Amino acid sequence: MTAVAVAPAGRPLADTLTMLRRNLLRAVRYPGLTGFTVGIPVVLMLLFVYVFGGALGAGVAPGVTAGAQGRAAYLDYITPAIVLFAVVGAAQSVAITAAMDATSGIMARFKTMAIAPGSVLGGPVLGTVVQGLVAVVAVLGLAVALGLRPAAGAGGWLAVAGLAALVTFALSWLCVAMGLAARSVETASNTPMLLTALPFLGSGFVPVETMPAGVRWFAEHQPFTPVIETTRSLLAGTGLDTSTTVQALAWTVAIGAAGYAWSRSLYRRERR
């Protein structure tokens, strides 16, 4: 009887670190994609603060007059939404890289190698978390340069970083699934853009109280609103609302779990 050789199953931790390194090297080799991740939130912040901020700031902060005071107040209000945009942009990039791997055949090649299956997807997700945190630091650095003066202490800053990392991790799994489900890289780059609409349809740019009833209901119950409100409270140094924080964490866990299950299912399926 001829013995059948069985390939080793791989080393999950080492394989994940290898895939993480591959993802980070790809970000260095394709600086345009990384620059896009950081550049869009920066442009949005400058646009909304300097073009719309003078007028909108007077609406979000009672007693503030239009003009310089309005811009300062609106900078405080809008920063959490721009932070979320940075996170969404980073997650969008992993959908593109996942589609590139799937359509080029390299992912099929990985399946034949002695690599831990979870590392093929987990490495890029962790790499996206790193890129997302870099984008968040860039956005917060710009906000401080424009005049933002957060009252958060050390614990608050750690909580902001932890929440940003958790949201990036969850959205990255969802976007990996979108990338694997797409039939082309172009489709993969467009599908996650639906996520960029959610901060506008929430409390990111204007208070939900100013919206019509139907839009307000959606804004109050969609995933990004509690994340934005929790980030806003952390940066302001005010006490967290327990209900809002629980909603933010629950939505994040649910999105991450659904994205993970979907992406693993797509990875196991043969691409036709």
Score class of each variant (00 low, 15 high):
T196D: 03
G237R: 07
S93G: 05
L24G: 04
M19Y: 11
G141K: 07
V87T: 04
G156D: 01
K111L: 11
A91E: 00
T245S: 04
R216D: 00
V64H: 08
S104D: 15
T34L: 14
P62Y: 13
P192Y: 04
F218K: 04
A81W: 01
G53A: 14
A250D: 11
A55V: 15
A254G: 09
D15I: 09
T230W: 03
D15Q: 08
G155R: 03
L234I: 10
A165H: 10
G123K: 06
A164Q: 04
A81Y: 06
L166I: 09
L142V: 05
G156E: 06
V144S: 08
S93H: 12
L46N: 06
F205A: 02
A95T: 02
A66W: 13
V64I: 13
F200Y: 13
P207N: 07
A250P: 10
Y77P: 02
G89Q: 01
R232F: 09
A143T: 04
A213K: 11
A145V: 12
V227I: 15
R232H: 10
M19D: 01
A98D: 00
R268S: 06
V88A: 03
L171M: 13
A66S: 15
W262G: 10
N23D: 15
R183E: 14
A7D: 11
G214H: 08
L240I: 11
R232K: 13
T245Y: 01
L194V: 15
A254V: 10
M211H: 07
L166R: 06
M19W: 08
S243H: 15
T242Y: 09
G63V: 05
N190G: 05
R29W: 07
R21D: 13
A219W: 10
S243M: 14
E186W: 12
L126T: 01
V28H: 11
G153F: 09
A68W: 12
A219F: 02
S233N: 12
G67F: 11
T225E: 01
I82A: 00
V185N: 06
F205L: 13
W251C: 13
A236S: 06
A72M: 11
A61F: 05
A98K: 02
Y74G: 05
M193H: 08
F200E: 07
L166P: 00
S93D: 14
A27M: 10
